[in-house]
């Protein structure tokens, strides 16, 4: 009961915050203008993937970080210690409730904005060729973006708990998150890079339900090794300032076969494990702190 009570209290406080209200309005407007602007030009899968860019890449990750910064920072900590943590509630219960409230708030804003837009794009008649949008693909897309947002909330939560100063935590996380995403993107590691993940979404959205993932080959394939070598070479070239190796001419995006090895379990593990680890670290650090 204490965890639910604190979650409810934190949710109400977040719902009343100007940051959440402004974000909801801004996200709704951005989604509306993006949809309207590309209504007659983009296929459904590409348009839906485009709508995810603000959440996965820029700028909403900044808002998510600000929201995710844990409540056990700065001047709020004294009030929390006196008001809530001096009551018969464990620190783990409190932190989990605070984290859950932030996660629910972020996902509520994301889903409130994205789901109506996706429904509209899917079912409205538009002057573009119909593509093979699948329900499975849409659900996976919503799921993986939610997973990335969960990771961001958890990282912000952890940074706030570790660094104690909300502003410092936000700056540090911003300075780490974006460059890290770029580096991971260089290796096309959609399991870890939201930028690569976003590029994979049009493929995902057209992927029908299948169980082929479980039949994955045990060892590395030759094409994977070749791809890895090419990506490493490209990354080293970028770092050393040398010329980027010429790429072979490729077909259109959906014909190239990119991201056909997209694996939901890999994504879940790639984002889920760091999120759980960040939350665990927050609990560990906070349970050893003097208030």
């Amino acid at each position: 009961m204490p965890t639910l009570a604190i979650t409810g209290h934190e949710l109400r406080a977040l719902a009343k915050s100007w940051l959440v209200r402004l974000w909801l309005i801004a996200a709704a407007l951005a989604t509306f203008f993006t949809t309207a602007g590309n209504w007659t030009t983009m296929e459904s899968a590409v348009l839906i993937a485009t709508l995810q860019i603000p959440f996965l890449v820029f700028p909403w990750f900044l808002v998510v970080i600000m929201l995710g910064i844990s409540p056990v920072t700065g001047v709020r900590l004294d009030a929390l210690a006196d008001g809530i943590l001096s009551r018969p509630v464990t620190r783990h219960e409190f932190l989990l409730a605070a984290w859950l409230a932030r996660l629910v708030t972020v996902l509520a804003v994301y889903l409130c904005v994205s789901v109506p837009a996706i429904l509209l794009i899917t079912y409205a008649r538009r002057p573009v060729p119909a593509d093979d949008l699948s329900l499975y693909g849409v659900l996976v897309t919503l799921g993986v973006v939610s997973l990335v947002l969960m990771l961001l909330v958890s990282l912000a939560f952890c940074a706030g708990t570790l660094l104690r100063q909300p502003l410092l935590a936000a700056v540090v996380l911003m300075l780490i998150w974006f460059p890290l995403s770029l580096v991971l993107h260089t290796f096309s590691l959609e399991e870890f890079s939201p930028i690569s993940l976003n590029q994979a979404l049009p493929t995902v959205l057209q992927t029908p339900w299948r169980t082929a993932d479980v039949a994955a080959e045990p060892g590395p394939r030759a094409e994977d090794l070749e791809s890895l070598a090419r990506q490493t070479s490209q990354f080293l070239s970028i770092l050393s300032g040398g010329a980027t190796p010429a790429r072979e001419p490729q077909g259109s995006f959906l014909e190239r076969g990119d991201y056909d090895d997209f694996s939901v379990p890999h994504i879940v593990l790639g984002y889920g494990i760091p999120a759980v680890a960040a939350l665990g670290l927050s609990l560990l650090v906070f349970s050893r702190r003097d208030l």
Binding site: D82, G83, S86, P88, V89, T90, R91, H92, S287
Partner: peptide, 23 residues
């Protein structure tokens, strides 16, 4: 102790100049 909820269940605490959720 930090996780001793039984202790905090037994205590009613009034801090100096208590602060509350103002809303």
């Amino acid at each position: 102790g930090v996780q001793a909820t039984a202790v905090r269940q037994a205590i009613g605490y009034l801090p100096t100049n208590p602060s509350f959720p103002g809303h």
